[in-house]
C-alpha cells in the first residue's frame, strides 16, 4: 500500500501509510490503540475505501474485488464476525462451501482444539474459543494472503503456541500472513517483517534485526510511539 489516507469526520485515521508484505512471510503490524492498524487492515480487506492512496492485494484493488479474489484472501476480524446462533463446526463447514477446494475442516478443527467445544453455540463460547474459530474461518480457504486482526488476543499460552505453529506452516505454503498485534513476544517470535505504526503512519519497518540492532523491540517501540518522544 502506498500513501494511504483515511479520515472519519475530523479524525485522521491514516495519513501516508506505506508498507508492503511479501508472500511466504509473516508481517506483524504493531502500534498503540488508535494508531490505525485496524483501519489499515480493513482497507486491505476491501471493507473500507481509503480517501486517497493505493492498496493492491495480489495485484488487485480490494475495494469491490470479485469472488475469486475474496476466495484467495483469508480474513479474521477483530470482533470475530461469527454468527451467534451457530455452532463452530457447522459454521466452518458452511464457510468452506464458498470455496472450490477448501482445507480439510476436520484436521483444522482438531489442530486448533475446536473439537472440544464443537457443539457449543458461538454465543456461549469464551473469548479465546471464539478467536480459534475465527482463525480457522480465516484459513479454511487455504488463502494466498491472510489478514488476521489480533489473532492470538485472549488465547491461553498453549493455544497461542498452537496458533503460531499453524501460522508459520500457513506461511510455508507461500501465503502472506499479516497480523496486527500488541504483543512484542508475538512479533519477535513470529514475524519476518515488522511494521510499527503510530498516528496513522509508519514509524519504522524492517526485520527484527534491522529494527532493533542492539536494543530490544520493546525499547524501539516505546521510543517511537511514546507521546513524549514525539
Amino acid at each position: 500500500m502506498r500513501e494511504l489516507a483515511k479520515r472519519f469526520g475530523s479524525t485522521t485515521a491514516l495519513e501516508g501509510m506505506t508498507w508492503a508484505a511479501r508472500q511466504g512471510e509473516v508481517t506483524a503490524v504493531l502500534g498503540p490503540n488508535g494508531a490505525g492498524k485496524t483501519t489499515t487492515i480493513e482497507c486491505a480487506e476491501g471493507l473500507q475505501r481509503p480517501d486517497s492512496g493505493e492498496v493492491r492485494v495480489l495485484g488487485a484493488d480490494p475495494w469491490g474485488a470479485g469472488p475469486d479474489h475474496r476466495a484467495a484472501v483469508g480474513v479474521m476480524l477483530q470482533d470475530g464476525g461469527l454468527p451467534n446462533g451457530s455452532t463452530p463446526v457447522r459454521l466452518l463447514r458452511h464457510l468452506a462451501a464458498f470455496h472450490q477446494s477448501p482445507a480439510n475442516i476436520d484436521a483444522l478443527v482438531k489442530r486448533l482444539g475446536i473439537d472440544a467445544f464443537a457443539g457449543t453455540t458461538v454465543r456461549r463460547l469464551s473469548g479465546g474459543q471464539k478467536q480459534r474459530v475465527a482463525l480457522a474461518a480465516a484459513l479454511l480457504g487455504r488463502p494466498e494472503v491472510a489478514f488476521l486482526d489480533e489473532p492470538t488476543a485472549g488465547l491461553d499460552p498453549h493455544a497461542r503456541l498452537d496458533a503460531w505453529d499453524l501460522l508459520r506452516e500457513t506461511c510455508d505454503t507461500g501465503c502472506a500472513v499479516i497480523v496486527t498485534t500488541h504483543s512484542f513476544e508475538e512479533a519477535e517470535r513470529l514475524a519476518d517483517h515488522i511494521v510499527i505504526v503510530h498516528r496513522g503512519r509508519v514509524a519504522a519497518r524492517g526485520s527484527l534485526a534491522e529494527l532493533t540492532g542492539k536494543s530490544s523491540l520493546e525499547d524501539v517501540y516505546f521510543s517511537l510511539t511514546r507521546e513524549s518522544a514525539r
Binding site: 480487506e45 476491501g46 471493507l47 469472488p67 475469486d68 475474496r70 476466495a71 484472501v73 480474513v75 476480524l77 470482533d79 470475530g80 464476525g81 461469527l82 454468527p83 451467534n84 464457510l95 464458498f98 470455496h99 474461518a137 480457504g141
Partner: peptide, 21 residues
C-alpha cells in the same frame, strides 16, 4: 441488526459469498 452488530455482515461481505450474494 445482530449480524451487523457482531460483524457477521462484514465477514460474509469479504468472503467469496460477498454482499450481493
Amino acid at each position: 441488526a445482530f449480524d451487523r452488530r457482531y460483524g457477521v455482515l462484514r465477514l460474509l461481505g469479504v468472503s467469496p459469498l460477498g454482499r450481493s450474494g
